[in-house]
Design a protein around this nucleic acid. Structure first.
Lengths: 114, 114
DNA sequence: CGGAATCCTCTTCGATACTG
DNA sequence: CAGTATCGAAGAGGATTCCG
């Protein structure tokens, strides 16, 4: 789902920490379990995914629902507030589509100057 | 111009590094000198302001023009590419106006839960 | 005036292993 | 399955001092 090779680290705009935006996009299609998030968000360790989810929960962006079953099951879901982040995310994606390559070219020109 | 007491560090959306957005907003009204940027952007040290400006210059967001005078004078100006950042910045400001306080309330409720 | 140099702290992120 | 515990690396950001 997310290409680890994409130069997203160069993006000048960030939503929350490194993984928050990916979590939010993943949760847009409905509630997801912990392990269902780990798959598309490649490269995230359980510890960091937990950190990210806790921070999002603290800010009221997601809800966490634990089911007392064996095996345990936990679902994360976007809240109304979490969905409000989609407008700025969309604006940032539009910016990236229009200007990201120009920025990378400017950067390369700068680095290759003498 | 920018209140250091404002909880901007809690903002889930960031443009570039900690100070880039403020620099861009300051430069919107026209070219500014190094020391003219240091005043409104309270709390930034020369080193970090230099870092920020270099990074923005590298990415083609600002131009740096040094005048060989005594005393020296350096002016920074937004490029066309730098101005494109205004759309996402505006979207983020709109988000903050609408939802920032709700996020802070959710956070406080989370922290005060038993 | 507009930085550069140095040193330092704090946070973020990750690897690995283990558990209720 | 859904985490937690521990350790460690790395980078951002800051304080202070010095320079052309």
């Amino acid at each position: 789902m997310f290409d680890p090779a994409c130069p997203s680290s160069a993006m000048p705009i960030r939503i929350g920490d490194k993984w928050s935006a990916q979590v939010i996009v993943c949760l847009d299609e409905g509630p997801r379990r912990f392990s269902e998030l780990q798959v598309p968000i490649r490269g995230v360790t359980p510890k960091v995914l937990t950190q990210t989810l806790r921070a999002l929960e603290r800010d009221g962006m997601v809800t966490r629902t634990a089911y007392a079953e064996i095996p345990p099951r936990v679902e994360y879901e976007l809240t109304e507030l979490g969905r409000t982040l989609f407008a700025p995310i969309a604006a940032c994606r539009a910016w990236a589509a229009d200007n990201f390559s120009a920025m990378l070219e400017a950067r390369e020109a700068y680095d290759n100057r003498d």
